[in-house]
Amino acid sequence: MADPLPFRPPAAAPVMPDRPAVRIEDLRLTRRWRKVIDGISADLGTPGCTAIMGPNGAGKSLLLRTIAGLEKPQGGTITFAWPPTPEKRRVALVFQRPVLLRRTALANLVHALRQFGVPRAARTDQAMALLERADLAHAAKTPARALSGGEQQRLALVRALGQAPDLLLLDEPSASLDPRATAALERLIRQAIHDGVRVLLITHDRGQARRLANRVVFLHAGRVTEDTPSDRFFDVAQSPQARAYLNGDLLL
């Protein structure tokens, strides 16, 4: 069925196709005297999906959290393609483990739509539309925390989409899901990409990166060591770190 377009304040102009959603320059983040992000510069949020890959501790999650405004960097700048407007948040973040309120699936979405400024009269209809998109209409009245892991993650994803974001940040969204649940989630992500949402996806799943991403940014020890189109990355990765990662070697 056709998706009714989620509520979007009229002022939000779309990002020009040739411009990245966010430009990062010399980003630095230190945690407990450890440089977890050590001078990253990149144009992110290009059209389509960018996979962010790299070994554990490379700084992938912190990079996403910093873009989402959850971490304060010690240095560098993050510039969005849109002027800073407090009334509309154009970046959405989905966590590895979904954080759902202790309410029904429907109430979770209604609550989020309220925060996103959707008028009261439109909230329930829009929430139902989002549930249908996630194939969760049957579970509208089910407590969100009683849903299966895959259902919970789909709910968290459509909740983020309810924000009508320009940039969607996904932090290993299917890390703890079985293949079937992963496939269902990927269908949702693919549709969002198709609808023009720019996606940054952290994943260790090479197949997933191949299926969804058109670009791969490889992080190691807080730096970008490789930034290439995805087909190129998996065929002929250039940096020794990326080659070692793909081979399953221990990276130090």
Partner: peptide
């Protein structure tokens, strides 16, 4: 502690946060 990051990504003010926590708790 559990909801903090979610609230931050939603851009919720402290009063809204308090109200949400009261209902969920």
């Amino acid at each position: 502690r559990e909801y903090r990051d979610l609230f931050a990504t939603m851009g919720m003010g402290q009063v809204q946060q308090a109200a949400t926590l009261l209902w969920d708790g």
